[in-house]
Simulated scan of single mutants.
Amino acid sequence: MSAPTYIYKLVSFSSPVPDPLPEKLPLSELDVASGFIHMSTPLQVPRTLKRFFAEDPRIYILRVKYSTVEKNIKWEDSKGEVPGEVGAEGMFAHIYNRGLGTTEIESVAIWERNRDWDEPLKKAESWLVY
């Protein structure tokens, strides 16, 4: 599979993304514990959202231009234990040895959950670009 144009970072409502964006955002507890920044392709966003953010009333989604972080990415399973091919099923983009901030983040969306995440996902289809 070809490399994506964008990859996405989902951020819980409990860690609001500052506006304006800082030069570097703080890492989440999960990212610090894992040793890398967890990212999703647009095809993975719905599953990531429903699995890890199902009860959040809102989330922040950071759209990152892949080419700005490509040299720091390893494609691996969700735990970072098994390497894989770019964009392969079950493989996630993990960013090592760098943070995210104004240089990498192309745009930020704030999604509000209704009963579930289906409506916000439908509205964002044109924004979730592979």
Rank of each mutant, 00 (worst) to 15 (best):
A109V: 12
S2V: 07
Q44A: 11
N114A: 09
A33C: 00
R51W: 08
L25W: 01
K123D: 04
I7T: 15
K74F: 05
R58D: 10
F13V: 06
D118M: 13
E85Q: 11
L100V: 03
V86N: 11
E106N: 09
R115S: 14
E106K: 07
P18Y: 00
L21C: 13
P26V: 01
L30W: 03
L121C: 08
D56I: 04
A124W: 02
L30D: 06
R47E: 13
T103Y: 13
T103W: 09
F92W: 06
V82E: 08
R58S: 15
L27N: 11
I110R: 12
A93K: 11
S67D: 15
I110T: 14
P4F: 12
L30G: 03
V64D: 06
T102W: 07
P26T: 01
E119V: 15
L43S: 12
M91I: 07
E70R: 15
F13T: 06
E89V: 12
E112Y: 11
G87P: 03
Y60P: 00
T103D: 15
R51T: 14
K50C: 14
L21R: 14
S2Y: 05
I7P: 08
S78Q: 03
I59C: 00
A33M: 01
Y8P: 10
P20C: 04
S15K: 12
K74H: 09
P16A: 05
R58W: 10
F53C: 09
M39T: 15
P46F: 01
E23P: 03
